[in-house]
């Protein structure tokens, strides 16, 4: 198990747990990021500290430290 922000670009994983403060948790879960959901790390914006994910056919960005609150299993 690792955290979402530590995936390499192009790496896929399955969500194990959605952590973080309630607003973040709720928002991510409502986007369909739940335990068992498949995600792929599309791109990293190192300068802005932002990662881009692909999940449920959409692309989402979140701050890297926020992505660090999600535990995943590498696929």
């Amino acid at each position: 198990m690792t955290t979402l922000d530590s995936l390499s670009v192009g790496g896929e994983a399955t969500i194990v747990d959605v952590g973080g403060a309630r607003p973040l948790q709720r928002r991510l879960m409502e986007f369909g990021i739940l335990p068992g959901t498949r995600v792929r790390l599309v791109r990293r914006h190192a300068l802005q500290g932002i990662v881009e994910l692909e999940v449920r056919d959409s692309h989402l960005t979140l701050r890297a430290h926020e992505a660090g609150r999600l535990s995943v299993d590498r696929v």
Partner: peptide
């Protein structure tokens, strides 16, 4: 205002 997490869709 409460800080909102930056979870944005990239259409």
């Amino acid at each position: 205002g409460p800080r909102i997490p930056l979870v944005l869709e990239m259409p």
